[in-house]
């Protein structure tokens, strides 16, 4: 039984911003909010359902501009979209492993981003694809790179009266590839014990661009920029990737939880960073 609340279902974005500013809980797919309400963790007395707001809907791709995703785009939309599998492989790997079909059908990218869990499977892949979010307030909007959107545990660069409107992801570059590896204890319906996303652009054998993001390795999803800097401009040798696996340990801070010890997470980080890079490089060579 859900607690009692007042429900608002506006079609106007500014109206939704105003309600959020007054303390209303924003709900889209409800796969986090209603779970928390059922469990007694969320007792919001006002709920604003944003699914009827046109500016948050729809998703499109163009080879010039890349992806323009409404915040309401679901994980299932991403999973079943051939463009994603072809050009944004890490996003396919991440989004297709969130929860179950039922959860992916309801849960939205905007919701996954704003819930801001360190274990969120969609965020690392979007970070390595250089995503930016469009955040709308009652009067104007601004664009924030996703890698700068997290200020601390569950803290977002978003004001009380702002709502995440869209997600912009650049067009795929030539000779680029990406991958996401999610480590779980069981194959289905499990949170990432650890996750590594990698994106590379190759110039012959040289790693021209590298982006790495870590899941469940810090209080927020993070980019591993030191490791990226180590790799950029060098040939993708086995020794270099092994070194990357070591460097990534210096810029991650996994904690011990009932799911795993920090030590095991560090061992995974070293190994999965190498594997994710290898997979991304293999993708780039095929592209």
């Amino acid at each position: 039984m859900l607690p009692k609340f007042d429900l608002y279902m506006p079609t106007d974005l500014a109206e939704a911003c105003r309600l959020k500013g007054e303390g209303a809980k924003v709900v889209a797919g409800g796969t986090d909010v209603f779970v928390n309400m059922h469990g007694g963790k969320d007792r919001s007395d006002k709920v604003v359902d944003v699914k009827n707001i046109p500016q948050l809907q729809g998703h499109s791709f163009s080879p010039e501009n890349g992806l323009d995703l409404g915040a309401l785009t679901t994980h299932r939309d991403i999973e079943l979209w051939d463009v994603i599998k072809k050009h944004y492989r890490a996003m396919f790997e991440g989004c297709s492993r969130v929860g179950s079909v039922q959860i992916r059908t309801r849960g939205t990218l905007g919701g996954n981003i704003c819930n801001g869990a360190p274990s969120a499977d969609s965020i690392g892949p979007m970070m390595v694809h250089d995503a930016a979010v469009v955040v709308a307030g009652p009067a104007n909007e601004r664009i924030v790179p996703l890698k700068d959107f997290y200020l601390g545990l569950k803290q977002l660069d978003m004001k009380e009266d702002e709502i995440l409107k869209r997600i912009l992801i650049p067009a795929p570059k030539a000779h680029s590839g990406s991958f996401y590896i999610k480590y779980t204890r069981r194959n289905a319906m499990d949170l990432a014990l650890l996750g590594v996303s990698a994106y590379v652009e190759l110039d012959g054998d040289i790693l021209k661009t590298v982006r790495i993001a870590l899941t469940t390795a810090a209080p927020t999803p993070i980019r591993a920029e030191k490791t990226e800097a180590l790799l950029i401009g060098k040939p993708a040798s086995e020794a270099l990737l092994t070194a990357a696996g070591k460097t990534v340990l210096t810029e991650s801070h996994p904690r011990s939880s009932w799911r795993s010890s920090a030590e095991f997470r560090l061992a995974l980080l070293e190994e999965l960073t190498v594997q994710a890079l290898q997979e991304a490089i293999a993708q780039a060579k095929e592209a």
Binding site: T31, F34, H38, G99, Q102, I103
Partner: peptide, 26 residues
């Protein structure tokens, strides 16, 4: 009652959803 088990699955406009995590109002 928290979207883990799927016992409450129904199809809404053909799509499977956990009906425990959907408002009837929607």
């Amino acid at each position: 009652d928290e979207g883990e088990c799927g016992a409450c699955t129904v199809l809404v406009d053909g799509h499977p959803m956990n009906s425990c995590l959907v408002l009837a109002a929607e």
